[in-house]
Nucleic acid binder design. Structure first.
Length: 595
RNA sequence: GGUCUCGUAGCUCAACUGGAUAGAGCAGCUGCCUUCUAAGCAGCAGGUUGCUGGUUCGAGUCCAGCCGGGAUCACCA
């Protein structure tokens, strides 16, 4: 039983003894910094039971806890707030338990499985800033679910078919001269992206030319030879024309190898990939079955619809009048396929931008109507757009921030800063590279994860490159700093053991603050998983590091003469470093031994 | 227009789900490296939480109505 639970139990005991009534709900919160204590019981709601004034209620409970609980040393009351001061002996015991637990913060395997989808790019454009937020979020939520006991399957669906990739193919065929990633030295995804842009350029020129000849805009857009070629390729692809399929495979292959490089640097991975070319025909049977069951209906032109007006939504098309599938149909099929592939998963998390909220609302509703129990366990992890100081990212205006470029800039900035601070004197070139990589990516990930996922956020390149303050590098620095202490402790043969810890009394307030923080860690992990919010861990890690730095600055560890106390300080420095490392790992951020 | 969503310090974000005098970082100003790493610490300054009402012991948080951003309402994906 942890401290908070014990405290709640004791308070409930107090209430039932003092007021002869039981309560389940207690408002227990951290004490404001300005008052003495760590835990505060809000007593206003209890006045109904106590029939006393808030202050009197608080005093009565406080006295009882000091007398009987064995946890509370003393207390103070401000208005209806009962501020409790936990006995140092209890803190020491709490810490001793944490110190001995190697898996602190992780729950044991709960036998449940969950699927998390993220990234899911198109194959015609390189990954950009928006994908970075998506990937970091999805990866982190997966780590959070692992930490609370789930087996997690990370997947993505790659949008590898359709007119967009045919556009790149058409442009490459016309203007590529056989260019390959090898011959050009370009990353595969960049090469294909280049031809997508190329397509657009020529297409616009051709449309303009036709218009100048007196063709209407609408007609010109249809007649532009390059567009005709792209459409022709799409039809050939669907007819499984060998040459077209081969080109498609080749160019997508380039994209995948390019993406792999980017994913690797980002530090994300996937357990299974779904390709839209495999799944785009799925779902149709399911929809037709739905028609038979009367869940969906057919219009006179043959198109199939679902009526969601009773649920406050619209009617939505599921099959076109020519019988072909739409986006929604595919997603229905893919969802069902995934539950067949992984029968044990209890639900799916879709990490997709909030512009698709309506789509997923409809999707989950349809799956529910089709009778799939798991539909209720599907969750759209909807995140807000990333804005630039100049406004929205627009590919047409060339304001898209490329993922590879950005990561490189961050790493370069980290290297420059590290060198400027003179931290690299004793490092090899390889060590410097590794450190710069770690720091640069930490700054980026921390920056993108610190905001509540649901909210739209601002990405200011100048601010993101900051390595001081509320940043990943600040936390990494704290970790490295603690490691330096531990190295010194080890060289002095100071080895803490759990037995000594319990005997420590008279803690400094900075020490209590850190133990209090460390003690919160498991609850924070669970909250973050429940809320699908890595931002909770980001802020937790920051607060813990901040707390430690205050201690570090205020109390010189090795000047302590009491051997027990010295060991205690080394021990909780160790645990702080471990907790920082674990928390950062949940965010996909590594921490260095020195920096 | 319907639906959803956001609005907190000059800027970027918090606020434990209704609790105390709304907190951090950046930017600005003051201090602190002969002691474990100054990518740090301590401090100053900065707020009518978009506006107006309501609910109650208590509202940034809940409700209503305005004002202002954004998203979405395709036989596109």
């Amino acid at each position: 039983m942890n401290l908070e639970q014990s405290l709640r139990t004791e308070i409930q005991k107090a209430v039932s003894v003092l007021f002869n009534q039981s309560v389940e709900q207690l408002q227990l919160q951290p004490t404001n910094a300005e008052f003495e204590g760590s835990h505060t019981l809000v007593c206003f709601p209890l006045t109904r039971i106590s029939k006393l004034k808030p202050e009197e209620t608080a005093n009565a409970i406080g006295n009882y806890l000091v007398e009987y609980s064995g946890i509370v040393n003393h207390f103070n009351v401000v208005k209806g707030f009962l501020n409790l001061v936990i006995a140092d002996k209890v803190w020491a015991e709490v810490f001793a338990v944490i110190y001995a637990n190697k898996n602190y913060g992780s729950l044991p395997d709960n036998g449940k499985e969950i699927m998390i989808e993220y990234s899911s790019p198109n194959t015609n454009k390189p990954l950009h800033l928006g994908h970075l937020r998506n990937n970091f979020l999805g990866y982190s939520v997966a780590e959070l679910y692992k930490a609370v006991g789930y087996t997690v399957h990370k997947v993505q669906i790659i949008n590898d078919r359709g007119i967009h990739i045919c556009k790149s193919m058409a442009a490459w065929k016309l203007y590529g001269n056989g260019e390959t990633p090898e011959s050009s030295g370009l990353k595969g995804d960049k090469l294909v992206g280049k031809y997508y842009v190329e397509f657009d350029k020529h297409y616009k020129a051709q449309v303009k030319e036709l218009e100048e000849k007196g063709v209407s805009k609408e007609e010109a857009e249809k007649q532009a030879p390059i567009m005709k070629l792209a459409i022709d390729m799409l039809q050939k692809w669907e007819a499984k024309d060998a040459e077209t399929v081969q080109l498609w495979k080749t160019m997508n292959g380039w994209v995948y190898s390019g993406f792999d490089v980017t994913y690797k640097r980002m530090g994300v991975d996937f357990d299974k990939l779904y390709y839209e070319s495999d799944t785009y025909l799925l779902g149709k049977d399911e929809v037709l079955k739905g028609v038979e069951k009367g869940i969906f209906f057919k219009k006179d032109d043959g198109s199939v619809w679902v009526d969601l007006t009773d649920d406050g939504l619209d009617q939505k098309v599921l099959l076109r009048s020519d019988g072909t599938s739409v986006y929604m149909t595919q997603d229905i099929g893919t969802a069902i396929l995934r539950f067949r592939d992984f029968p044990k998963i209890e639900g799916q998390v879709y990490t997709v931008g909030n512009e698709q909220e309506y789509h997923f609302k409809v999707l989950f509703l349809i799956l529910d109507k089709l009778g799939y129990e798991w539909a209720k366990q599907c969750y759209h992890l909807s995140y807000g757009m990333v804005d630039l100081p100049t406004g929205k990212m627009k590919s047409r205006e060339g304001t898209v921030v490329d993922a590879d470029d950005l990561m490189q800039e961050m790493v370069d900035a980290a290297r420059a800063q590290t060198q400027e601070l003179g931290k690299v004197d004793e490092m090899t070139a390889q060590e410097i590279d590794e450190l710069a990589e770690m720091i640069g990516l930490s700054a980026l990930k921390f920056f993108l994860l610190k905001v509540d996922p649901k909210k739209r956020m601002m990405f200011d390149p100048n601010e993101s490159i900051q390595l001081q303050g509320h940043t990943g590098p600040f936390i990494q620095y704290t970790h490295a700093r603690i490691k330096a202490i531990l190295r010194k402790a080890s060289s002095l043969n100071i080895a803490p053991d759990a037995k000594v810890l319990k005997d420590v009394s008279a803690l400094e307030s900075a020490e209590r603050a850190i133990i209090f923080k460390i003690n919160q860690y498991p609850a924070k992990v669970q909250e973050a998983a429940r809320e699908y919010s890595p931002a909770i861990i980001v802020n937790y890690a920051y607060e813990l590091a901040k707390e430690y730095n205050q201690f570090y600055q205020a109390i010189p560890i090795f000047s302590e003469s009491d051997a027990g106390k010295l060991k205690f300080r080394v021990a909780f420095s160790q645990t702080t470093a471990d907790t920082i490392k674990k928390a950062m790992a949940l965010l996909g951020i590594r921490v260095p031994e020195r920096m």
